[in-house]
Deep mutational scan, measured.
Amino acid sequence: SEEWVEIALRLLELGREANINGTILNLHKEEIEELIRRLLKRI
């Protein structure tokens, strides 16, 4: 399964939302940290 691709796409999506909203992603901080942890486990 290409889970890391899904994770990377989700991170990009959150990054785009952050640019549009001008936020520092506090809302998504925990989700982002969890996604990155899952991503690093696969490398």
Rank of each mutant, 00 (worst) to 15 (best):
residue 33 E to N: 09
residue 5 V to I: 07
residue 39 L to R: 00
residue 37 R to P: 01
residue 22 G to Q: 08
residue 20 I to P: 05
residue 1 S to A: 09
residue 32 I to R: 00
residue 41 K to H: 14
residue 7 I to T: 01
residue 31 E to Y: 13
residue 24 I to V: 02
residue 7 I to F: 04
residue 9 L to H: 05
residue 31 E to L: 14
residue 1 S to V: 14
residue 11 L to T: 00
residue 11 L to G: 01
residue 13 E to I: 08
residue 37 R to S: 03
residue 8 A to W: 12
residue 25 L to G: 12
residue 38 R to P: 01
residue 39 L to H: 01
residue 7 I to G: 02
residue 38 R to M: 09
residue 12 L to S: 02
residue 41 K to L: 08
residue 10 R to K: 10
residue 34 E to A: 06
residue 18 A to H: 08
residue 19 N to P: 04
residue 5 V to Y: 10
residue 34 E to I: 09
residue 33 E to R: 12
residue 25 L to A: 13
residue 13 E to A: 04
residue 36 I to V: 08
residue 37 R to E: 06
residue 16 R to H: 10
residue 28 H to K: 07
residue 43 I to V: 04
residue 3 E to Y: 09
residue 23 T to F: 12
residue 1 S to Q: 11
residue 25 L to E: 07
residue 20 I to R: 08
residue 2 E to S: 09
residue 15 G to Y: 14
residue 31 E to S: 01
residue 29 K to W: 15
residue 17 E to R: 12
residue 7 I to V: 05
residue 2 E to W: 15
residue 37 R to A: 08
residue 22 G to N: 11
residue 37 R to M: 06
residue 33 E to D: 07
residue 22 G to C: 04
residue 15 G to H: 09
residue 34 E to F: 04
residue 36 I to R: 00
residue 5 V to E: 02
residue 41 K to D: 13
residue 27 L to F: 08
residue 3 E to H: 13
residue 5 V to P: 01
residue 27 L to D: 13
residue 42 R to D: 11
residue 8 A to H: 03
residue 41 K to A: 12
residue 23 T to V: 09
residue 27 L to K: 14
residue 25 L to P: 11
residue 40 L to S: 03
residue 42 R to Y: 15
residue 2 E to T: 09
residue 3 E to P: 06
residue 26 N to A: 08
residue 39 L to S: 00
residue 29 K to V: 15
residue 24 I to R: 04
residue 34 E to R: 10
residue 2 E to M: 12
residue 29 K to C: 15
residue 21 N to E: 05
residue 24 I to G: 06
residue 16 R to W: 14
residue 7 I to Q: 01
residue 21 N to W: 14
residue 29 K to E: 09
residue 35 L to R: 02
residue 36 I to K: 00
residue 34 E to N: 14
residue 5 V to L: 10
residue 15 G to W: 15
residue 14 L to T: 02
residue 19 N to E: 10
residue 32 I to L: 07
residue 30 E to L: 07
residue 1 S to W: 15
residue 33 E to C: 15
residue 8 A to T: 10
residue 18 A to S: 05
residue 3 E to I: 13
residue 23 T to H: 13
residue 22 G to I: 14
residue 22 G to Y: 04
residue 29 K to D: 09
residue 32 I to F: 08
residue 23 T to R: 04
residue 30 E to S: 09
residue 24 I to P: 05
residue 26 N to R: 01
residue 14 L to G: 02
residue 9 L to E: 04
residue 2 E to V: 07
residue 33 E to W: 14
residue 24 I to M: 05
residue 32 I to D: 00
residue 28 H to F: 15
residue 1 S to N: 05
residue 36 I to A: 01
residue 6 E to A: 06
residue 20 I to T: 08
residue 6 E to M: 06
residue 15 G to S: 07
residue 9 L to K: 04
residue 30 E to K: 14
residue 30 E to D: 13
residue 10 R to V: 11
residue 42 R to P: 09
residue 40 L to A: 08
residue 3 E to W: 14
residue 31 E to V: 12
residue 27 L to M: 12
residue 22 G to T: 12
residue 13 E to W: 10
residue 9 L to A: 04
residue 6 E to P: 02
residue 21 N to D: 10
residue 19 N to G: 08
residue 23 T to K: 10
residue 43 I to K: 03
residue 31 E to P: 01
residue 1 S to D: 10
residue 31 E to Q: 06
residue 33 E to S: 07
residue 39 L to T: 01
residue 28 H to C: 11
residue 12 L to R: 01
residue 16 R to S: 10
residue 3 E to K: 10
residue 29 K to T: 12
residue 14 L to H: 03
residue 40 L to W: 09
residue 20 I to W: 10
residue 25 L to V: 10
residue 15 G to A: 15
residue 16 R to G: 10
residue 40 L to R: 04
residue 12 L to G: 01
residue 42 R to S: 12
residue 40 L to M: 08
residue 18 A to V: 13
residue 35 L to A: 04
residue 41 K to T: 10
residue 23 T to G: 12
residue 39 L to I: 12
residue 26 N to W: 14
residue 1 S to K: 11
residue 12 L to W: 06
residue 25 L to Y: 01
residue 5 V to S: 02
residue 39 L to D: 00
residue 29 K to Y: 14
residue 6 E to V: 12
residue 37 R to G: 04
residue 9 L to W: 07
residue 7 I to R: 01
residue 8 A to D: 01
residue 11 L to H: 00
residue 37 R to Q: 05
residue 26 N to Q: 11
residue 5 V to H: 06
residue 1 S to G: 09
residue 11 L to R: 00
residue 29 K to I: 14
residue 35 L to K: 01
residue 43 I to A: 05
residue 17 E to K: 05
residue 20 I to V: 07
residue 9 L to M: 08
residue 14 L to N: 02
residue 23 T to N: 12
residue 8 A to G: 03
residue 23 T to M: 07
residue 31 E to D: 05
residue 43 I to Y: 07
